[in-house]
Structures are given as C-alpha cells and as structure tokens.
Amino acid sequence: MYKELRSHIISLLEANTRLDGRKLTEYRQPITVELGVVKTAEGSARVKIGETDIMVGVKLEVGEPYPDTPDEGTIIVGAELLPMSNPEFEPGPPQIQAIELARVVDRGIRESKALDFKKLCITPGEKIWMVVIDICPINDAGNLFDASSLAALAALKNTRFPAFNGVKVDYKNKTDNKLQLEKTPIAVTVIKIGNKFIVDPDTEEEKVVDARLTVSSIENGTLCAMQKGGDMPLSAEDIDKMLDIGIEKGKELRKHL
C-alpha cells in the first residue's frame, strides 16, 4: 500500500524537503492556542496546527478517591475520533486509536505531575475532584498526538473550579479558584520514514510512517512519558536522535502556551 507515495515522500526527504515544502523538523504554521472557547466547560482550549483543529474541554466532578490514594484527586482523559473530523473515522464506541491517544495525553500530564493530585482532595477518604479532560478533533489533518497534548494542557491552564457546597456542584457558578499547573509537559511525536526523522506529519505522511516516538518532556528537558508506535523497530541510535528532536521541539511548542 502507498508504495508510490512512500517513495515520493522519501525522495523529498532525501532532498531535505517535504510535500508542502517544510523542513524535516518544522511544524506547520500557524500554530494557535485559544483559551476559554467553550463557556459550558470549566476550562477549554482550541489548538490549531496548520489545518489540524482540536477542541479540548475540562469538566470537574466530585467523586470518591481510590482506596490506595485516599488523599488524592485524579484525572480522566477521553478522546473521541469524531467522524466529522476525518473521512476515515467511523461512528461508534472509541476505537483503539482513540484509546491510545487518550492514554498518551493522560500519561504526559499524570507522570510529569503537572497537577498536584493532593490539591484535588476535598475530604480525605471521601471526596475528591476528578478532572475530566475530553479531546474532540474538529479537523484531523495529521498529528493529533501533539495537538491534543498541547490543547489538553492549555485547557487545564484555563480551568476554574465551580462552586461546591459539600453536597452538590453548582456548575452555573464558577469561582475564581484556578487549577494550578505545576509543570508544563509537552508532547512531540517524532516520525521515522526510511532513515529520516520528521515532526508534525500531515495526513499523507501519516500513511507511510515506519515508526513514531511520542516524547513528553518538561521545562528542564526531563522526560516524563513516551510511546513508541508504528510497525518498524528502532535502534538505540534512532532513539537517541528522536529524543533530541523531541526535547528541542518541545521547548518551541511550549512558547505557544
């Protein structure tokens, strides 16, 4: 499949360029981050990278803590690959691609400790805040991983707690109490096609990926989560190069927050 497309893309990469004329480690432009786009959410953001367009909304719910972490709140990340956003997405329950996307975004936030779960505790052993983050692509023109991670973090940054009287959440009444971000984990997905590495693949490039590595890192370059995907294996040298690109590009993307 896609044999012609693949050899065409590889010959472009050999000449240090791509289908749309970009350099190998260049993101599409413009990159825009809009905060507070959805009034019904406690926090929201819309991120566009080129033609890729994602909305993320945060709802806050009160729930019970897990027995092993009685004094910690938690996050729940959901992603729906809306059939509106891509002709190949089908209606129905979340497919494995949606689950992987949600889990990769979840790990970046959870493992970097971007949120202090202890601050989400209301009454130890009884009541906690659950931060529910939902990812909805409007237009999928490639690279949902990076756009979703950036949008999720931006939406968290925009989140304010609703009023809570100990029994019921009053969603109509937002307080000035903001969710505090301790870290800013940024995900960069580095793609290997042939023996070349690129970032921010478009729809055509995504069809011919050999391997991908999503690298989530925080401000000081420390890694907080990773996910290898694609059918081909990676060498230690490959990983070395991909991490360098991931961390460096993460610093660039973080400026958009």
Binding site: T40, G57, K59, G78, E80, P83, P91, C136, Y171
Partner: peptide, 18 residues
C-alpha cells in the same frame, strides 16, 4: 445524520460520550 453533544457542551454535568 448523526447529532452529538461534545462531553463538555452542557452547562451542567459532563455528557457521557456514546
């Protein structure tokens, strides 16, 4: 035709997807 509310689209509780 398919009509769907995004999970965060209601001014009350989250709308369960599906």
């Amino acid at each position: 035709c398919s009509y769907n509310m995004m999970p965060f689209s209601s001014s009350g509780e989250r709308v369960r997807p599906g």
